[in-house]
C-alpha cells in the first residue's frame, strides 16, 4: 500500500509511523522546512488522560489511556512513566477537592508522600493528588525520534513540500495539516508556553498547580529544563506570547516553587491548536482520504489512537477492495 501523509505535526508523524510499521510504503510531506515550525513542537508532552478528564470528554480519557502503551512500543527510551502530581496553594484548597471529584484514577496523598515523590516540594504542600499511571515524553525528542524511525523503516520525509490532499499516485492520503485544513468546523485555540532552566528545582514528573483562573503545569525536561504551560485563548492569531500570559505563567510557577524566581528564561513560544466545537480530535475517512485533525490540547495523548484507527480504516479498505475486485 502506498500512503501519502500530509503534515508532520504529531498527528501526521504518528500516522506515518503506524502505517510504516504495518508495512505500508509511506511518504510524509511537510510544508515547513523544519519539524520545529509545527505547533506540536511547543506541546507539553503529557500523557495524562485522567487529569485531562477534568474537562475532556470520556472518549479522550478512554483512548488517551492507551497512549502510554503505544509510545512505549514506538519509542521505548523516551517515555517517563512516573505519574502526575496535582497540587494547590493553601488558599485554593477547594480547587483540589473539585478536581478530585471531576477526575478518576488518582490517590490523595499527604505531605510525607509528596516529599518522597518530589523532594523539591518537601514541606510546601500538605495534600496532593497523585495520578500514578500517567506519563510524559519530551515532544521535541519524540518528533525527531519518530522521524528517524520512520526513515529507518523505509519511509520518505519531504520537507518544504506541500502534498496534494487527494494525490492519485497513492492508495491512501492521510491529511493531518492542522489549521491549514480547509474545514469550517475547525477553530484555533492559542496556547503560550515558556521553557526555563534552573538546577535548584528537580522534578521527576509533571506537576500541575490548580488555580481558579490560571491553572498551570510544569513538565521536567533534560538538563534542568522545565516547560511551563499553557494558556488557552479562543483565538487563531499566530502571535508571540503576550505580556499578560507570560506574567501569569511566571507568577504561577513562582507560586509552585520560589526557586523558579532565579531560573533562566530560555524560551517563550506559542502555537495555535486546531479544535472542533466539542474539542474532541477526529479521524474521518472519505474515499481514499483520511482526515486526522482537531487535536486541541490532546496531541501526544490522542495521536496514537487516531493513527491506529486511520491504519485500521485503510487496511480494511484495501482488504475489502481485494476481495471485491
Amino acid at each position: 500500500m502506498k500512503v501519502l501523509v500530509n503534515g508532520a505535526g504529531i498527528g501526521g508523524l504518528c500516522a506515518a509511523f503506524e502505517f510504516a510499521s504495518r508495512g505500508a510504503e509511506v511518504t510524509l510531506k511537510e510544508k515547513s522546512t523544519e519539524l520545529s515550525v509545527n505547533p506540536s513542537w511547543q506541546a507539553g508532552g503529557m500523557l495524562a488522560p485522567w487529569c485531562e478528564g477534568e474537562a475532556a470528554d470520556e472518549i479522550v480519557v478512554a483512548e488517551g489511556a492507551k497512549a502510554v502503551h503505544w509510545w512505549k512500543k514506538a519509542l521505548p527510551n523516551e517515555v517517563q512513566h512516573h505519574g502526575t502530581l496535582v497540587v494547590v496553594a493553601p488558599r485554593d484548597a477547594s480547587e483540589l477537592s473539585r478536581f478530585s471529584t471531576q477526575t478518576t484514577n488518582h490517590d490523595m496523598i499527604d505531605g510525607n508522600r509528596i516529599s518522597e515523590l518530589e523532594p523539591s516540594l518537601a514541606g510546601r504542600y500538605r495534600k496532593a493528588l497523585f495520578f500514578k499511571e500517567e506519563a510524559h515524553i519530551d515532544p521535541r525528542r519524540a518528533m525527531l525520534a519518530l522521524a528517524d524511525k520512520l526513515q529507518a523503516m523505509g519511509g520518505r520525509i519531504e520537507l518544504d513540500a506541500t502534498g496534494e490532499p487527494d494525490d492519485p499516485a497513492y492508495d491512501i492520503v492521510v491529511n493531518a495539516v492542522g489549521m491549514a485544513e480547509k474545514d469550517s468546523r475547525l477553530r484555533g485555540v492559542r496556547g503560550e508556553m515558556l521553557i526555563v532552566r534552573t538546577p535548584e528545582v528537580a522534578l521527576s514528573r509533571p506537576v500541575r498547580l490548580l488555580h481558579p483562573r490560571i491553572p498551570l503545569y510544569v513538565v521536567p525536561r533534560a538538563d534542568h529544563h522545565f516547560m511551563i504551560g499553557a494558556t488557552m485563548i479562543e483565538s487563531d492569531a499566530d502571535l508571540k506570547p503576550t505580556v499578560r500570559s507570560v506574567v501569569e505563567l511566571l507568577n504561577a510557577s513562582f507560586t509552585l516553587h520560589p526557586a523558579f524566581a532565579e531560573a533562566e528564561v530560555m524560551e517563550m513560544n506559542s502555537g495555535v491548536r486546531p479544535a472542533f466545537a466539542d474539542n474532541i480530535p477526529r479521524v474521518e475517512k472519505r474515499g481514499r482520504q483520511i482526515l486526522i485533525n482537531g487535536f486541541y490540547r490532546h496531541g501526544y495523548l490522542m495521536a496514537p489512537s487516531l493513527a491506529v484507527q486511520a491504519a485500521d480504516m485503510a487496511f480494511e479498505l484495501t482488504n475489502t477492495e481485494d476481495i471485491t475486485s
Binding site: S235, D236, A237, D238, L239
Partner: peptide, 9 residues
C-alpha cells in the same frame, strides 16, 4: 490581540 477577527470562530 493580533487582529479583531482572531476570535471570530
Amino acid at each position: 490581540a493580533g487582529g479583531q477577527q482572531a476570535g471570530q470562530k
